[in-house]
Each structure stands twice: as C-alpha cells, then as structure tokens.
Design a protein around this nucleic acid. Sequence first.
DNA 1: CGGCTGGAAGCAGTT
DNA 2: CGAACTGCTTCCAGC
Length: 865
Amino acid sequence: IVYICFPIGSSIPPLFHRSHTPNVSLSQGNPCMPSQYHSLQSGPTISVSISQPPSYGAHNNMRTVGYYSSPSIRPNGAPALESPRIEITAYGQFPEDKVEESNNLTVAKRVNSIVTLTLPNADGYRDPSCLSPASSVSSRSCHSEASSYESGFSYNYENSPQNSPWQSPCVSPSGSSSLALPGDACANAGSPRHSPSTSPSTSVTDDSWMGQRGSRPNSPSGGKRKYSFNGTTTSKPPYSPNHSPGPSPHTSPRICVTGESWMPNNTNQYTNSAIVAAINALTTDGVADLGEGIPLKSRKTSLEPGAVCLKVEPGGEELSPGELGQDEYPFSRMPFKKENYCGGFLDVPQHPYSWSKPKQYVSPSLPALDWQLPSSSGPYSLQIEVQPKSHHRAHYETEGSRGAVKALAGGHPVVQLQGYMESEPLTLQLFIGTADDRLLRPHAFYQVHRITGKTVSTPSHEVLQSNTKVLEIPLLPENKMRAIIDCAGILKLRNSDIELRKGETDIGRKNTRVRMVFRVHINQPTGRTLSLQAASNPIECSQRSAQELPLVDKQTLETCPAAGGERMLLSGHNFQHDSKVVFVEKAQDGHHLWETEAKVDKDSCKSTSLLIEIPPYRNQRISNPVQVNFYVCNGKRKRSQYQHFTYMSANVPIIKMEPNDDYDPPQVCPQRGPGLALRPKPYYTPQVMTSIIPTELRPCVGGTYSACQRRLGGKPSSLSSSSSPSTSPKRHDLSPTTPFSKCLSAGPSQSPIPHVSIIQESSGCYQPQSVLYPPSSASSSPGSQPSTPDTSGPEPPFSPTHCLTPPQPISGSSSPVTQFSKVPERGSRSSSPTLAINIKQEPEELDQMYLDDGALLIIHLSTLS
DNA sequence: CGGCTGGAAGCAGTT
DNA sequence: CGAACTGCTTCCAGC
C-alpha cells in the first residue's frame, strides 16, 4: 500500500500524473478544483490511462487509494489540513503489489486534509467500504465504483476469488464495452457477470460488493446468481465490480471534453476538492476500493501489511470521525478517479459546451449528500420543471442499461436554476435518493447511472461521493441554467451486496422507490457557497412493483374539513376497480388511532385515477389541523405509500387544489404552483420535517433555515403540538409498502419540505449547525466533519451510525443521539454490526422499529429544545 | 452490432 | 413444517 500525501494546496506529484491521474496534474494547476474536474481536464491524459486499464497493474498499482483516516491522524478529522495524504494501496492483485508511486507517500494514512469533512460516522453506513480503502470490505466498493466509472482498472481478482466479485460491476461503466478486463478480472469472473460489466457503472455496487461480498458467503438473495456465478468462478464474486476495465471503454472517445471545459473555470474554490480529487484520482484506480471490497482474507493475502491497517473492521471503524469522513469524502472523489480514467472520458461525448467551470464548490467541503438542503434561497430556486415518470425499471449490473429516466409525457426530466444571473456556468449534481418517509438521503440500493450515446444531448460525468455516484451536469447561462436530464439512468445494486456492507442497516427488499436528487452549489460574493437541492417525485424502480403496486402521484386535495364529504381525485398508477383507499391516523407510538375506508367512485375508476370521497374524521370538533395518512390498497400486500392528508377544523380555511383535467399531465413544475394543480405526492409533508428540523437545526441554521417552514404555508403550526398526530406520528408512519418510512422524509423536491440551506464558508467547512444531519451518517462529506474534529472524538469509533444526529452539535447531547443511532432504524446505519443484523427485517417489522426510533427522536428533540 | 426494453424463468426468503 | 406467495435477479428475445 502506498500512501501519498500532499498538502492541500500543494500540487500533485508527478507520479500521479503519470499514472492515471492525469487528473492530478490538473489538480495541480488548480488545487482547488474538484477532483472531477481534474479528471476532466486531464482528459487527454485520461485517455492514456485508459489504455492502461488492462494494465493497471502495470501502471503502478495505483489501484487503491486508501484513505482511511487513521484514527491517529485524524482523530479530529481536522488534522488533515496539515497535509492531505493520499494513500494508495496496491493489492496483491495487482501485478505489482505496491508500488509506491507517490512521491511522498508517507505512510500517513489518511488524507486528513480532506478529511476535514470527515464525519465521524459517515462511514457508518454505506461507505464503510469507503472508509478504508484498504480496509476491508468497504474498499471494495470504492473500487468497484471506481472501476465502474470506467476506470479501467482491471484488477486481478484472481488471487482471491473473492475479489472477483468486485470485478464485475465495475466493468463497464457506461456500457462501454469493454470490460475487458483483460484479464484478470475477467478471468476470474469470467463469469457471466462480465456481462454486467457492460452495464455500467455499478461501480458503486462494486464497492458494496466488495465489502459485502467478501463477507457474505453467498448472496442472500440472489439465488440465481449463484448458479451462474459459481459456475464461473468464485462463488460470489460473480461479477466483480472490478471490471473496471470499463475504463477502457471510456478511453475511447469521450474523453475529456468535459473535463477540459470544466477546467477553465475552476477557480480555486475547491481547495479541498482538489485534494480530494487528487486522491480520488489516485484512488480511482479503485485501489482503495479494492481494498475494501476485497474480502479480508483475500486482502490479507494480497495486501501488504499496511493494508491491514487500513482495513476497517467494525472495530476498526473506530477511526476518528474525521477519518471516516475523509474516507467517504475521498471516495466521493473517487469518482473522479474513475472518471479520470474512464469516467471522464466516457462521460459524455464532448459537447459543444464547455462548461468551464465548476467553481461552484467554493468550499472544499460540500454538504454531505444526506444533508437536507432547501430548494430555494433568496433569488435562487432550483426547480424540477419536468418530473420524471413515476416508474423506471432500474437495471442490474448484470443487465445492459435500461436507458435514461424519462418524463411522464415523453422526453426527459428538466431541471432549472432560477434567479441565477451570473455568467458563470454551474454544475448540477444528480444522485439517487430515497423516497421513504425519512429524511432524504442517498439510496443505498440504487445509483445514478450515466447514459451516453447519440440520443443523449446533455454532457455529464460521474463522480463518486461517499459511496454514492453523483452525476455532474453543466448548468449553462446560455441555456438559462436549464438542463435536460437525458443522461441519467438508474442502476440497481443487489440487495445482498448492500446489506452486507458494514454499517448498512437498511434492507433492500421492497425498498424500491427512489427520487432523483439535484443539487447546485452557488458561490456567493461573500465567499460562501449556497447549496440548493431539489428532489423529484418518487420513482418506482422495480419491475414487478411498477406493475402491481398502486402509486399515487397526485391528489387534488390536501386538506378538508373534519366533516369530510369532499371529493378528491387521485392520479397515479395501477389503480384497480377494487382498489380501496384507506385513511389512517397513527399515534406517535405507531398505533393506529383511527382507520377508515373512503368511498371510491368505481365508475370513474381508471388505472391512473381514482375519485374518492373524503371520509369524515373521527372527531368533528378538532380545533387544530390533524394530519392523517391514506393509501391505496390493491390487496393485502399491495399498498401505495402513505399519502398525507390534513383535516382542518371548521374554522380553518381550506386549501384546495384545483383538479386537473389530466391526471397524468407531464409533471411539469408542479411545485411551483402554490397549491393549484394536483399536488405532487404528498409524501412527507414538510411539516414533519419542520417539526424535527427546527429543533435540531435551529441552533445551527441561520436564516436560511426558515425556508424549510414555508411549505405548509398555512400550516406552520406543524411544529406545534397541535398537529401532533401529524407531526410526530407521521414520521413514524411508514408507508405500507415502504419499509422505511419512518423517519422524516423529505418531500418531493418540490414539495415544500423544509430544507435547511447550507452555507459553506469559503474557508471550508460547513458549519455544523447549518445542516441537518441525516439520519444516516453515511456520507460524511469532507466538509461535514471538519468542524467536528474534536467533538467527534468519542463517537468516531462508531461514528457512522447516528441517525439524526448532527454530527457534532450533539456532542453534548450525544447520549440521546447515540441511542438514536443505535436504534435499528433503517436510516441510521449503526456502526455496530450487531445492531445492524437485528435491524434488517422485513419492512413491516421495520415499521415498528422505526416507530421506536421515532420515539427516541422525539425525545431527543424535545430535550434539545 | 449494441443498446434498450419487455417479459418472464428460476430461486430463495416470507407468510 | 410445508405450501403458497413474493420479491429479487438473471436471462432471453425482439426492436
């Protein structure tokens, strides 16, 4: 394992350049630039690397880069700044085991600097792999991703059968083809999986794979796989993500265009990013990933001693939060790597555009992906003008791409940043987030997949951030800061792979709804960066579910007097003549307080619309709004997610939405309308969020925060106890179908869900406060942690897990938080394996759990308040 | 020829 | 404990 370290601002060592990381060079030029960019810039270089792919080993072994933060180093995470280090770990797999490319490379392990971000916990969850590149499992993921990205790495998994697993996924990121893993990877895998490679990117998966696979004996779920795989090669690994060979594909053409364009702009904003990028680049190789991904056993063998250190086992996770954060962060960057290698190239064919710059990220640390951000702030508003279709069958790594997500009326989703009058292009980030009731966060089982080809008009490139693939798309002033998202598909990761990840507590079964999450980071004159986020309506990604489960896209009423009697039109999918619409009210503890069936007008029932009569509320004398839920049921196990509905007291003005003629209009800008038009899924009412957020956030959040509240509009009170049922209880509610609904979920992007805006200091770190911490700590963005340096200290070991805990803020309150984290909640990814095990259960059961969690949460909040 | 789809077979986990 | 279901993945085939 080689560690490469350099000061943040410093330029990247030549080595990197050579190797694959042309990117690096880029970075040199712009320390600040995000890794991605680097990669991009390096474009040309990249190609070079690509060629290598097969030979990765040859190159040097860069394969893994580890970031792990060693506890020692980063305890705080802060340390980093000193000099970021990039660690590169070569596995035995590689022809050459370790080559120390890095110049310096001290062994220092972590790139602390980057770390800044580190969240203690971040790893916790999905990133575990990320965490330690070298370290076990997690590393894989990284790897894979990297690979997927196109890195061309081909790892040899041969050494360890286990490894093989990784290979597969990575392989062809974009489908490029070639997986060619020349050898190695393929060899191992030989397997069928390769096919997958075709598919794309999986890299993410890979990562996961790595970790998981290694660990898991078999894939739980995939029965089939076994066969195919086993036969082939090692049992599990069937596909190894690693296929990174993918890169090769990339190599081809597309190259850098993207990158270059970006370059220009870069300013410096990304100091950390630069570093990270560099790291990523290095890492990209997947090395890091590899490490993680690789089963310990194998690793050990292959890995060198150093590697061992890297491995983060549960215990290992003890790493300081910062570390974790770093890890993740780096990982995130990893993508760049991939890109560098492949990604960049692959990415989109060059476009006329030159997006020059990505300045956006001023601060080194961008908000973690699980942070809740507002969709608008001041003059800026990030909006999804055209919503994606509510169904999109995601593809497995073993399949070819299933294309880009489309819009309901044909075409593709469209996103626009309004209120931005500057001349500088910005970067629109896209990742796949959850769609359950809990806070929006990256979806562990789905990843965005970059689509390329002649039918794609929008350039993009993938970046890996905290185990989550992020697609970056240029937002150009000449296009009115509007982007047509025709380059984004959705990749499904095998449940078994993800569930085995260290720290992953969510279960994949029946967890098939996602949302496209868009983010943009705007640099402000003040030197701060304003981050906005918009999430799409939920998208059902499973083939079967999409065909059978009822799904409510819109409802014409959000509120109604307690007396009921009003008619509401529901639009969606899979409605049947015998569909039932059930209204329920749950107590905070999850108990049903009330349940009644609404009258359905069967005559007007269509597969895409249902006309119902709102049933009277159980108490006609309510003085405050009462939030309840309802769902459409096609049978015992075929229920839609919970939809929110509010009963108002007779005195309260009712907010009615005009019925739309068409039930399935292209969902364009639904959000906008304050209330007219069918409302996009209610999913989670903002209220919920509100209630929660306020408490925690308030302290931290500045004015921005207010944004969150707006949504309810009329219902500011949400927080107030009045709506109690709604407020707290709701959170808990899980959608029937969705296992995890418990936590608050952010509403659809547009939905008013409250978000907290985050302003980053140019200096770098986010201030802890400004952000809500997502339940899962999963991603610790680099920035996220930074601040925590010290605080995290204690928790770091387990860091990952906390649900809602704000990273640091709570240090004091940690105890409560901690409990939280421990709670089985899905969202939370508790670091402790044990817990995780218990936690994973069928959705329904989970509900209960969630409830519990919710209870805890509530307590915690109240305490805070 | 390769990518994108729609369908569905084959399994294993749940009920 | 076994049968019936479900849901997840992988394969196929057509466009």
